[in-house]
Design a protein around this nucleic acid. Structure first.
Lengths: 256, 256
DNA sequence: CTCCAATTGGGTACGTCGTACGCTTTTCAC
DNA sequence: GTGAAAAGCGTACGACGTACCCAATTGGAG
């Protein structure tokens, strides 16, 4: 394997011409690594461990992958391939972005190590396919590619931020258990009286009356409303938004 | 030091009563670790390295910090303390959220290891202070705490997503150099013809006519517009938004 | 004051990690 | 058939986090 000097793993060919048939494949190694990381966390997916799972020696993996870092990039793109996204956008941008957001969340939830890694865009084939779908959803007359960038970024950012919070909140024991155990610290924070908004969060907690799914969906619609309000033709705005919010605006401008 | 069994580092007291005066402090160790991570990356900030920088042995650090994981949490909160945020929101929610977003970006840019770590909310004092400011900015009549959560999450998500892209784009060599080096791969992707939006991104690139600062600011205003459009009183909407976008709506509904 | 329990500094050591190197075995091009 | 290229993989090196230990230091009780 080339070792160093390549731009990204995607420019390194899987295998050359001469020599014995390889016993494994990148896809197989990647899938094994993902399975271990899913079950026992990212740090459990060491080269030795992956190799053991495959019944071989650690160093054999380096015939397929230049380094562990590259394997991680392969893992990211591998799970992005689980997208149940249509081949092309439907024409209903709102429905398509909703699909994109839910897919982003679903993948991150299924592979909780992803947020540790996600960052740097590696432009793997599956990442390209997903991005193509999201950007294509907003391929609307009058929208520049820069605007599309911003709006897709809003959805991506929302989804990742939300799923990160969900994972953080559900780490280790149950939410109830966690709340009980951190109660003394929370109480001590509240006792300072310097965090009124934190106090509102604790007191008016949303957990009781919303499931994570509902919470995510609700926030997502607010993001989509925010985008819709700025589209040239305002397509995709919810009835509620037009009826409720714009009524206020019209009334206000009448008064002025 | 307690070792295990604590909810978070913030519940572990810095030091007890009896015994010799400690030669160092958590703050000092944390600052040293941050300095190393800033200069040479997160993985360079090993326990041995930090200790060496302080002129002591690796194991001495464990008198101050239960584990490296806890030290990382301390580092996160430490840099969050660089916030140049006012003590309390000004009453202009848009200006305040803008401040919050720029602060989030500035911190992440100054400490490029943050996005590797940021995730799980640890509720450190500085994180609480920053969150208090952001949430307080939207403490507006008619907004539930759940709505505030969503809107602050939109801004946080946007800022983190944007800064992550910026860091990813500027890693290693210059943008020009990187573009030239990855050109073959990009060309091969374009050659498939299956990624029209990716093609638009490459061709209509925004890089030439916008600095990262401008790009961030522009996208941020779009996010804030999206929030403004949904507030009960629509306060904080830009002139441009009202004049340009709403004109379309009003015209539709039969104005003038 | 003396004395002891608590606490600090830090050396040594263990089990892990990623991976450089080099050997043997297998395969294909000629 | 023969040689070069590639695969499989054992060994080894220099990191890592940290458990354990012990000597040196200190403050409070008597």
């Amino acid at each position: 394997m080339a070792g160093t000097g390549h731009t990204s793993i995607w420019t390194v060919p899987e295998r050359p011409a001469r020599g014995p048939r390889p016993a494994y494949s990148r896809a197989q190694i990647t899938a094994t690594a993902v399975a271990i990381a899913d079950a026992e966390g990212l740090e459990a997916a060491s080269m030795r461990r992956i190799a053991a799972e495959l019944g071989t020696g650690a160093m054999s993996l380096y015939r397929y992958v230049p380094s562990r870092g590259d394997l991680l990039a392969l893992m990211v793109d591998h799970v992005l391939g689980e997208a149940e996204l249509p081949e092309r956008p439907s024409g209903d941008w709102r429905a398509d972005l909703r699909l994109y957001a839910h897919h982003t969340r679903a993948v991150a939830a299924r592979h909780r190590w992803l947020w540790n890694l996600n960052p740097r865009p590696e432009f793997g084939p599956n990442q390209l396919r997903v991005a193509e779908f999201a950007f294509g959803a907003l391929d609307i007359d009058g929208l520049t590619i820069d605007d599309i960038f911003v709006y897709v970024g809003m959805v991506t950012g929302y989804a990742q931020n939300a799923v990160r919070d969900e994972i953080g909140a559900s780490e280790g024991e149950s939410a109830e258990e966690r709340m009980r155990r951190s109660a003394p610290y929370v109480r001590s924070v509240l006792a300072t009286g310097r965090y009124p908004m934190f106090e509102r969060i604790i007191r008016e907690a949303r957990q009781p009356h919303m499931t994570p799914d509902e919470r995510f969906a609700y926030g997502l619609e607010r993001v989509l409303d925010g985008i819709a309000a700025q589209l040239p033709d305002r397509s995709g705005l919810t009835e509620a938004f037009l009826a409720g919010r714009d009524a206020a605006l019209l009334g206000e401008q009448g008064r002025d």
